[in-house]
Design a protein around this nucleic acid. Sequence first.
DNA 1: TCTTGACTTCGAGCGCACTCGAAGGGGAAG
DNA 2: CTTCCCCTTCGAGTGCGCTCGAAGTCAAGA
Lengths: 124, 124
Amino acid sequence: MDRGLTVGEAAAKVGLSAHTLRWYEQEGLVEPVGRDGAGRRRYESGDVDWLMLLTRLRTTGMSVRDMRRYAELARRGPHTVTERRRLFEEHKARVLERIADLHRDLEAINVKIEIYRRMEHEQQ
Amino acid sequence: MDRGLTVGEAAAKVGLSAHTLRWYEQEGLVEPVGRDGAGRRRYESGDVDWLMLLTRLRTTGMSVRDMRRYAELARRGPHTVTERRRLFEEHKARVLERIADLHRDLEAINVKIEIYRRMEHEQQ
DNA sequence: TCTTGACTTCGAGCGCACTCGAAGGGGAAG
DNA sequence: CTTCCCCTTCGAGTGCGCTCGAAGTCAAGA
């Protein structure tokens, strides 16, 4: 038994399917991960950390296309750190805007709930 | 010139395409809207209000399927008001959870930005 | 040794929410 | 009357992000 997790174990850990993990690799979101003697993927802790970062980017609405751009920067080495930071700061701004939009739209939904509550009251 | 907006005007007003407005009608998200003598759609202010509510539900992540369920309740009349309020309250809870998730994931992104900043500093 | 089950690659398929294009029909301006 | 533009219906196409299935390999357990 080599060190590291199989694709199934890594998938369970990060909350994605094994199919999706292979697809992420194929799409260039993840560097080709190490293999054991039989050609099976072995996810080390660094690989898992990277996947967890990717899932955070995904759940905050980053597209696969942008995640690929980011992965390419990371592969190109330490001289792309400034660009990576900018990419994250732009993403952060988008997420903050998204949160503000959600709050704004919730206002309208709350108004609607209040209207329904009043209608229920009058029906009695 | 009849009263009301054409599909193009209504689309511009609510920020959707004319194609999408027709599609919403076809999908049962909107009651068949009134027509002028030539069979063209005429959106009255109530129709536009409904579309604006729908767009708020969409931008807060409600699926077209759930919007259709809501539209069906509204069509069934005033005795569905309680159910509509419940639907909105459940949706509101999901949106609040989504906002909380976004804040949590932003934390991780902020940590990453800080790490990059330190790396940039050390490179100088 | 045999079975089981997770792994491999590859390519096709799916669900969602539009998005577009074709073909034709007014109606208002010049 | 012609031009123009927006309208109509219908069905097909698109982009995204997976998701699935087929066919085959391999290693560990009974």
